[in-house]
Simulated assay, not measured.
Amino acid sequence: MPEPVATLTASVEHFYSAPRWSEAAPLIRRLHAEERLHRSPLGFTIVSGHADVVALSRSNEAVREAPPGAAPDSSMDRLTRRFLSLTNPPDHRRLRVLAQQAFTPKGLRAVHDQVRKVVAELVASVEGAARFDFVADVAHPLPVGVFAEILALTDEQRDRVVPLIPHILTGIAAEPTPEAAAAAEAAADAFVELVRGVIADRRRNPGSDLLTGLIEATDAGDRLTDDELLGMTCQLFVAGMETTSGLLGGGVLQLLRAREQWELLCATPDLRRTAIEECLRVAGSVGALPLRLVLSDVELPSGRVEAGERVTLWLGAANRDPEVFADPWAVDITRSPNPHVAFSTGIHFCLGAGLARLEADAVLAELTERLPDLRLVEGSEEFAVSTMLQQPARFLVETG
């Protein structure tokens, strides 16, 4: 018999006071079994079922809120107000039409060689090492290097931007601490100052980079404003750097833990496509989306959410829903179909999904070909402390 809901409530409160996605499996199982719409005394509702997450994502009846603690027109508010993932129509459609011009299949083909080059260099740098930290040596520097390339940032600009992103990301999580909110605002101030200068330089000296593409994007004469460019660039870094790093690190970690799956992938390169989708399902970096405000009553498969409720969609739980995925806690690189929501769904489907898949494909191709004997050093795993991200901060691997 399930334990009383009060215990579930206490478990949720504990998770938000000391978030560890690596320890969230029992909580996710209980949410699925007991309350797929869990109304927490913390002031928001957790949506954990796959069907509910999909239905609410596609309803367009939720709107972003300013991050808790962010003052109106502060740097954090100005940046995140323009995040595609946190806007609704009609603003969302206008921003997406302009932004997607820089994310065409042709544009992805143009960065393909850059991605392969960065991956090959990273793998070559660790190939002779007996032991290395996969996150620090591969998963983190890859998206950083790729984005520095495609945004044409100097080394100095890259080194200034990269440390700011984790603080900004923590600031948009559900209920950040006052200290985290203050750190996020300081990071946002620094980000705005730096990127405004880069945008001004691109206007004077346009190139073939992604930022120039966003500056030059037009729809019936409409263009992105400078504040919109700031917000778009910030989201590109958040999604393209921090969350992609989590996907790469988390995906490889899950494959190495399920040793037979790693060996199957090494022996069967044709499974790389389905392996990437399974990595996205079990290790998609974003575990929970930022809080949104429900605009009007919405009937979901598990019940109703009402106008005025604040909700957070737990993508990490939806991707392990036993009503959708057979043996949801097992890693199966042959799983097909695989209707995961790692990139969300509906109008908020991640604009950079193609680039993330491209990077994952390049990493798995290089590793399985050049380091098939890669093995996890048991007990070396450390995980990010975050109410949003489910990603490793560190794990050691051995070669040979």
Rank of each mutant, 00 (worst) to 15 (best):
15 F>I: 06
16 Y>W: 10
16 Y>H: 14
17 S>F: 00
20 R>T: 04
24 A>N: 01
36 R>K: 15
42 L>S: 11
43 G>R: 15
44 F>Y: 14
44 F>V: 11
62 A>R: 12
68 P>K: 09
70 A>V: 07
71 A>Q: 15
78 R>V: 13
80 T>S: 14
94 R>T: 08
96 R>L: 03
122 L>T: 08
127 E>D: 08
131 R>Q: 14
147 F>D: 08
157 Q>S: 01
158 R>L: 05
164 L>W: 06
167 H>W: 04
183 A>N: 06
190 A>E: 11
196 R>F: 00
201 D>Q: 14
207 G>N: 12
207 G>M: 12
209 D>T: 10
237 F>C: 01
239 A>N: 08
240 G>A: 10
247 L>P: 14
256 L>N: 09
262 W>M: 08
262 W>T: 06
266 C>S: 07
273 R>L: 06
280 L>T: 02
282 V>W: 00
285 S>W: 04
286 V>G: 05
287 G>I: 03
296 S>F: 00
296 S>R: 15
316 G>Q: 04
321 D>P: 13
324 V>C: 04
330 A>E: 14
331 V>N: 08
334 T>I: 02
339 P>N: 04
341 V>K: 03
342 A>N: 01
347 I>L: 10
352 G>C: 02
358 L>H: 06
364 L>V: 06
399 T>N: 13
